[in-house]
Design a binder for these strands. Structure first.
Lengths: 116, 116
DNA sequence: TGTCAATATTTATATATTGTGATGTTATCA
DNA sequence: TGATAACATCACAATATATAAATATTGACA
């Protein structure tokens, strides 16, 4: 139970456990992005984006490359996207549950057949 | 960014972000298990196991079934295992990083070719 | 060198999660 | 009904994570 490998795996999943970080990964599906581009896409301030990127960086989920004063981020292992795809499939299988949880979160429900 | 669907996905991944819960899911690969069986397998006290199961239950990741005074848990969607398999593949692809992080966690490194 | 733009880190505070122990609940059975 | 077994939930201190604002770093360029 307290095997380090499980702690590590848990850390990995925890890194995925934040809306902004999921959106960042979604953006990175289209290839590398600068912090600024992400900042615009996410409508978040620079500091916050940088912080979320730091979390992903610390868990080796993303990599960065500096070009001049701009830093470009990319996903380290494309298999991450496969992981997100499987997750999406799971969500689609359980839309009703999803709606229940969203309601519980006090949010409006998703449409009948959402593009996740 | 603040779309509820991302919040929901994040909640899902957060639920996977705990060593004990990952071990529980690992146990449930072999089919349903009673709380007691899990308690023994994880070497945790009853209350803690119950609480971790509650987290998984609240996120609709597991289902429970009562038989007399015993409660059996099972994974709701086998695709969860597929997700864990992809995660494992990612970890295997990045063993060096894994070791780096384990070191950072102050733990002993894993063997060269671990069975995850 | 001085300044600016892009990004990172720090700091403080708020919030959430965890771990542990105590208490509740429910079903069985004497 | 009373006792017990199997779980669940509650309560609270400890720890971790999130959020936001301020400050630091780095590279380009005048």
């Amino acid at each position: 139970m307290q095997q380090p490998i499980h702690r590590f795996k848990a850390e990995f999943f925890k890194a995925l456990g934040h809306p902004a970080r999921l959106v960042i990964l979604g953006q990175l599906r289209g290839g590398e992005r600068s912090v600024q581009e992400l900042q615009v896409a996410l409508d978040m301030d620079q500091s916050s984006v940088s912080q979320q990127l730091a979390v992903l960086r610390n868990k080796n989920i993303v990599d960065s490359r500096k070009e001049g004063t701009t830093v470009y981020y990319r996903v380290r292992d494309p298999m991450i996207f496969q992981l997100l795809d499987v997750a999406r499939a799971i969500f689609n299988n359980h839309l009703i549950d999803t709606q229940a949880i969203l309601a519980q979160l006090g949010e409006e429900p998703v449409e009948p057949t959402p593009r996740l």
